[in-house]
């Protein structure tokens, strides 16, 4: 029972200073509940990427503690990093697909590194591709797909292991508004089935369409949090037209 009471992510007085002296995060404390969807906003250089890198154990905090899914990350040493990363799905702005491998092989990679039995691999890869609507491209190469489709493949790869936590760094950064909304809706669907979702995005217009908590970073500090209730509630499907959107916002 305590497991469900514990937040999925807990930052406690976290500082991150890079070797070049840049203070990327300053005294950051933050809880993200299990099953919650949270947007991380702020200008580039505000510390969004650093926050995500700490979660992925690409970087370590200079000070402070970080607990993810019940594990204090300070206790996860180098040899335990792979096992830790398998509990988390990651989506990147540049999607990081391997160009010389088929979509199937790209999506199956997290299962393969975890030694999943081959017949389960095929089943779960197809399920994940089906969830992002790309089942028919199984044997295609990433270059044969559009940018939006490539991003959805990246998403399928992130969720194929059914991780409890999904983190994304500017997942819609290279997408036009229609595709952005489509991708965000897929994230939303995963949140609806219990996955904790943390998305860094500077696309404020887009994320305002979603009923989710927003955390704003500025110069490495947490500036403001918008609780879910305070956000304007829209049906995302109706809000593809940004002009219409701006009109609503002004009222």
């Amino acid at each position: 029972m305590t497991a469900t009471a514990l937040p999925m992510i807990r930052f406690q007085n976290v500082f991150k200073r890079y070797p070049n002296g840049r203070e990327a995060l300053i005294n950051l404390s933050l809880d993200v509940a299990s099953g919650e969807m949270v947007f991380l906003t702020g200008h580039s250089g505000a510390g969004k990427s650093t926050l995500l890198k700490l979660l992925a154990l690409i970087e370590r905090p200079t000070r402070g503690s970080l607990v993810v899914n019940g594990q204090n990350l300070a206790t996860v040493n180098r040899s335990k990093i792979p096992a830790y990363r398998r509990q988390l799905g990651m989506v990147f702005q540049d999607h990081k697909l391997l160009a010389d491998r088929s979509i199937f092989d790209n999506v199956s990679l997290p299962l393969v590194v975890a030694n999943t039995a081959p017949r389960d691999v095929a089943k779960r890869v197809r399920a994940a591709l089906d969830q992002v609507g790309l089942l028919k491209y199984e044997q295609a190469r990433p270059v044969e797909l559009s940018t939006g489709e490539q991003q959805r493949v990246g998403l399928a790869r992130a969720v194929v292991t059914k991780p409890p936590l999904l983190i994304a760094d500017e997942p819609t950064g290279n997408l036009d508004p229609d595709l952005s909304l489509e991708v965000m809706n897929i994230f939303r669907r995963f949140q609806e089935v219990g996955v904790t979702v943390l998305i860094a995005s500077h696309n404020v217009q887009l994320i305002e369409h979603f009923k989710a908590r927003r955390i704003h970073l500025e110069g490495g500090r947490l500036i403001e949090e918008f609780p879910v209730a305070e956000q304007p509630l829209f049906d995302p499907a109706r809000l593809i037209d940004t002009a219409h959107l701006a009109d609503r916002e002004s009222t």
């Binding site: 398998r86 391997l98 990679l109």
Partner: peptide, 10 residues
């Protein structure tokens, strides 16, 4: 890099 990101061990 990608393999390590998705949890591939050394």
């Amino acid at each position: 890099e990608v393999t390590k990101l998705v949890g591939g061990s050394d």
